[in-house]
Design a protein around this nucleic acid. Structure first.
Lengths: 249, 249
DNA sequence: CGTAGTGTTGAGTCAAGTCAATGGTTGTGG
DNA sequence: CCACAACCATTGACTTGACTCAACACTACG
């Protein structure tokens, strides 16, 4: 399995809970795909679309979002490299939300039929996809809690913790610090706050010595305290314990 | 397919997007199960559990919930008859949330292995389960929007609309009115509000002629207006259009 | 008929929002 | 290399939707 095959991270993610048979592994890597390079702010999927491809994120970040009647936006999820961005659209007819680029990205477009065929013929892959989808649902449940029942400090601390642990688990973050490519407005849209208030909370977290910010770089000066503020527990991410990298958190 | 087989509603739900082969249908109905009757307030699943069965709701309602550090509770989803309550636990090791009974319920417990075996051997069933899971994720996304970006009036209107349409789609609600078996406190926990505020909002919706309440019975006097207040659109529920009952909404 | 769980109401408070201005950074083109 | 533009971050003053606290009313049920 060559390290620079664009679907390597996807394959790793599919094997997070149980490793696949050799043959299945090869079939995933043999999936037909076409690489695209896209700029920040653009859309990968729009609500109401009837897509024919599944985009797998190779590099960069995207987020899922919905816009409400009064024009405000809610960010629903962050996708990191290796995530299959529109599994929903492979199996449901119409997209129910938008997917927008956070950074410049490389995505691999895989035809809908190729994925469906794998699911039809490879039970282990079908199971792995079910698991992926269930983990995504679990994260969404935690977001409902975050936005519904935590105050601004806890919301922001929590989302910082989540992002760090997920990146770390996929080998994409340095220890106790990472590049957070979100503006404060995007952070606000992810936490159900306003950008003004996000700013105040970030500054207060920094003033209290929990984090340091330099550019978009965030460093955790007191990881334990930040977890406490955000009531963060890794359980809902369903990252297996044998993943030693993630254990450093 | 006998109408009073306890798994009939589950089977219908699995076939919401594509009908299953006859053989698969029979295999679903032949799943081994054990019926249990449980009282309101009890727990079906607790966070941290390692369950061995999948509970399918036959009658009654349950909800998913999580409790935060300061003791407040967030309701994450409502399950109605026909829902497979712990699919997550069939494929992930540990439960990440609690499931609590809203009303008295009858549940059918199906052994974990029986479900997994079906998924391994019946591609059409695996696909149907993926679809179910994706719809559940879509509903969760809408809940994040609801709690993150809508005011109290809209949140409550929205959840009333959702519940009504889902019940209707499964043939469980009368036209433009239904039994809402939730206390105002539970409604508050589902919308990220307090019960006091829920009370005020419900009264104001009633005063404006959008709904009528009698006991726990809710009637929609102005369905269109209620949808507008809640910015409700059925799309995210992914209920196929050919479902004529749901069309009345 | 008492008790426990809900629902209802009012008064006062507060976390977060709004509005509006200022300051910093980055990138671009002259 | 500088000037300008666009975008983002920061700050202060003020407002407000929702919360808190606390009392009281209703209903169901043993």
């Amino acid at each position: 399995m060559s390290q620079d095959h664009p679907l390597t991270l996807l394959l790793e993610q599919l094997q997070l809970h149980a490793s696949l048979p050799d043959e299945d592994r090869q079939l995933v890597l043999d999936l037909p795909y076409r690489l695209r390079r896209l700029d920040p702010g653009g859309y990968l999927v729009r609500e109401g679309d009837v897509p024919t491809h599944c985009a797998v994120l190779v590099t960069g970040y995207v987020y899922r979002q919905k816009v409400t009647g009064n024009g405000s936006r809610q960010i629903l999820a962050l996708c990191i490299p290796g995530d299959a961005v529109d599994l929903q659209n492979m199996f449901l007819k119409v997209s129910d939300h938008n997917v927008q680029l956070l950074t410049q990205c490389t995505v691999a477009d895989i035809p809908r039929e190729a994925i469906q065929h794998l699911v039809q013929t490879r039970p282990a892959i079908a199971t792995a996809i079910i698991e992926l989808t269930l983990v995504e649902a679990s994260i969404l449940r935690e977001w409902v809690v975050n936005v519904g029942r935590r105050d601004a400090r806890a919301r922001i601390a929590h989302i910082l913790c989540e992002f760090a642990v997920r990146l770390e688990a996929r080998g994409l973050a340095a220890n106790h610090g990472f590049e957070l490519p979100m503006t404060q407005e995007q952070l606000a849209d992810a936490t159900g706050l306003t950008s003004v208030h996000v700013n105040r909370v970030l500054k207060s977290l920094e003033a209290e010595g929990l984090i340091t910010r330099k550019r978009r770089q965030v460093h955790f000066d007191d990881w334990r305290a930040l977890q406490d503020v955000g009531e963060f527990s890794r359980r809902y991410l369903h990252i297996p314990d044998h993943d030693t990298l993630a254990q450093t958190y």
